[in-house]
Amino acid sequence: MLDWLAMVLLLAGAFFFLAGTVGLLRFPDVYSRLHALAKADNLGLGCVLMGLSLQAESLVTALKLLLVWPLVLAASAGVGFAIARRARALGIQPWRKGEP
């Protein structure tokens, strides 16, 4: 039962990573790509970590796995904001609907 749940979570994680990459390929500008990577990839990582921690051999290993998540979340949120802010300071205009 737990094995099945873990597998479903890993598959969901892989799906969100794929969605993040699809977003990176299809979204028109750096701002919307940041949305895709920051949100979809982090959720994917969260699913993978949850799935693996269900399989972990001890509680403390599971906790250690889950500890990776807030660290990456903080990293992505901070880096995402920093990139968006610099892009804005460099004068990169966001894509508007109707443009090519």
Partner: peptide, 18 residues
């Protein structure tokens, strides 16, 4: 947020209005 952006990514840029 993740589910929403995944949905938009699969529908492509026509679903955006940034």
């Amino acid at each position: 947020g993740g589910v929403q952006v995944a949905h938009m990514a699969l529908r492509g840029r026509t679903s955006l209005q940034p």
